[in-house]
């Protein structure tokens, strides 16, 4: 698929050297995502090819505007929901629960 991920030959992305010496993980959620996705693949929940294709199916504007490990997160969510391992409704409900729990802990 000749999508936005197929970046070879594109122009205008700027300097490479600015990214040199950046840390591997900027935030802890990135580290967890890396571990989680690899654990899911090691447990044969999905293959590396399915994973990449799920990332490539992200909306082009979202793909360009999101970070590397956001690609991992969104690709994995797509696959887990498509495979019926959990539903979008379950995921949305979990987000609401976590938010409520956090607000509770702050009051």
């Amino acid at each position: 698929m000749n999508g936005v991920h197929d970046m070879g030959g594109m122009h205008g992305f700027g300097s490479i050297i600015e990214a040199v010496d950046k840390p591997q993980f900027h935030e802890e959620w990135e580290r967890r995502t890396m571990g989680m996705v690899n654990a899911a693949m090691a447990g044969f929940q999905f293959s590396v090819d399915e994973f990449r294709y799920a990332i490539e199916r992200m909306a082009p504007a979202h793909y360009l505007d999101s970070s590397y490990y956001e690609h991992w997160l969104e690709g994995t969510l797509t696959l887990l929901i498509e495979k019926g391992l959990f539903s979008q409704a379950e995921f949305d409900a979990r987000i609401t629960d976590l938010r409520t729990a956090y607000k509770g802990s702050q009051s």
Partner: peptide
């Protein structure tokens, strides 16, 4: 995004799709 990661992790663990120890092990390996 951190919230979405947390929600995904909690569902994966709850449904037994991945084990917490496997996540820690892979992070250590990489």
């Amino acid at each position: 995004v951190a919230l979405r990661v947390k929600a995904m992790e909690s569902l994966l663990l709850e449904k037994g799709l991945v084990e917490s120890s496997a996540i820690d092990e892979l992070i250590d390996m990489f």
